[in-house]
Design a protein around this nucleic acid. Sequence first.
RNA 1: UCGGGGAUCGUUCAAUUGGCAGGACAUCGGGUUUUGAUCCCGACAAUGGAGGUUCGAGCCCUCCUCCCCGAACCA
Length: 567
Amino acid sequence: MTENDLDASALKSNYIRDLIAVDTASGRFGGKVQTRFPPEPNGFLHIGHAKAICLDFAIAAENHGVCNLRFDDTNPATEDVSYVDAIVEDLAWLGFEPAATFHSSDYFEQLYDWAELLITKNLAYVDDQSPDLIADQRGGFGQPGVDSPFRSRPITENLELFRKMRAGECAEGSRVLRAKIDMQHENMQMRDPVMYRIRGESHYRTGGDWPIYPTYDWAHGQGDAIEGVTHSLCTLEFSDNRELYDWYLAQLPLPGPAPYQTEFARLELTHTVTSKRQLKELVTAGVVDGWEDPRLPTLRALRRRGYPASSIRDFCSFIGVARTNARHDIELLESFVRTDLNRSSLRRMAVLRPLKLVITNWPTDTSGAPASDFRTLTNNPENEGDGTRTVPFGKELWIEHDDFKMEPPPKYFRLSPGREVRLRGGYLITCTGALLDDDGTPLEVHCTYDPLTAGGAAPDGRKVKATIHWVEAKTAVDATVALYDRLFTTKVPGDATGNPLDDLNEHSRELLEGCKLEPALRETVPGEVVQFERLGYFATDADDPLLFHRTVGLRDEWAKLEKRAKG
RNA sequence: UCGGGGAUCGUUCAAUUGGCAGGACAUCGGGUUUUGAUCCCGACAAUGGAGGUUCGAGCCCUCCUCCCCGAACCA
């Protein structure tokens, strides 16, 4: 996080910053602010997590506090060390370094001791009923629950049974430890929630040490308290858990003031999904090619697609935080990506759908072959320091199919018979005709060039309405370019039918083979993002130097006009 | 049905805490331009509804409507 990010975000007020100001004024935590990012290692980080990460780290940094990473690993059935590694990696890529890394499993021993304490205080009991029975007894919305027959079990018996559970002497699912709160409570979370369940699975960190595992509720607040967290930020769906969070902490001898939980709305974006379940479905159903498919909103996918981490951070700090369920336009994220890349990326020329262009009056050299020529082009008009490069030019060039039309529609400024346009950084050329196939599709465009316009400017000051990009044919490098579009056609996937897969965009990826690149593009480093002039930003694949992913297209007025004309 | 949370331009976030409703994205129009990009200028456009308190209400009160979350031994 840079100083600028801090300044920019500090300007925006929000209710969380307001709360902290109140706490600072009252001295509730002695002026301390500490947060944590608590992912469960059972999936990959996505753009939604980025919002939470940016918030957690920003709140801590603004207040001279720290933010830790804590793996919330209380469920061995779904968690894996491979996710731990991936999360660490993605977090670092996003640009954040936790002050320390912890695991909920670090606290299993302490949690166990505290559970015995609750039993001793007659605030917890061992229940021998089945999950179904326990669920039935919990009641429903508006209907109170009923007490378990085991609720009045004597303390000594609870202690004895709990120790048996811990010793591995009880079958999986045979009994649980529950907090003794209130089965009639209006908040369902408070109806004697389960604290421990028996699980046979081996834990990726504690192995077979523990036959019992704490639930989220019994672990989370205590982990916060042990680490010295002051402000525990989480998403809205945990609002009802807050009362339980506070209840548990109130029963325990904590080392310091109890942390408290504040909720905020999770990030949702149009035309995509951000729930772990739905993301997983896309991967397992083979809709996309794994978790790193550039069409996914996972952090590793966005990275592969060329989204700068800074643009994601800027986006997150800009959208701020609220309690309103909101779905941001994906266009907003893309505008941050463009702003970032416009400043930072080198300009290059590439022709995606090549059409041969022949300059009929191009000179020959002494041997009778077409003369060779080199043009100088600016690497990045937004940054003079990036300098210039030389690009080979010659008699035969590739231009974009879209940049020539036999019969130009209204407002079309590009090449057509009789028209003069500029080849960017090259010459002014005038179209004299074209070879067509039987369908009328252009096969080859013929032009003459004006030798006095080297560099692209006419000495007589005449103007042309269009500048098009080009790649010299003999030196062109062949490459594959992947064009990406929205993964879903609708703003809210599955809104109509309940199943996002019904709204899949069949054309979310288009692979173009045989694209023509200028030679300098051979030198890009893996992962580098460049601008293909007039087309968009493209990221070199991490493994294949001749595969480019379209990060995002340039804004395109002509495409808009065309679309409008078509109705 | 009960509990919790929410509702401000098309979208989203603000509104100095009761004092001229502002920004960004999107859209539309114009200017600059060797990228129909960038940049610059301009326009459009909102307080869910009904009452009440007040000199004054997006903000306070009452009622209503609509939306989201909650009944895993998931997190």
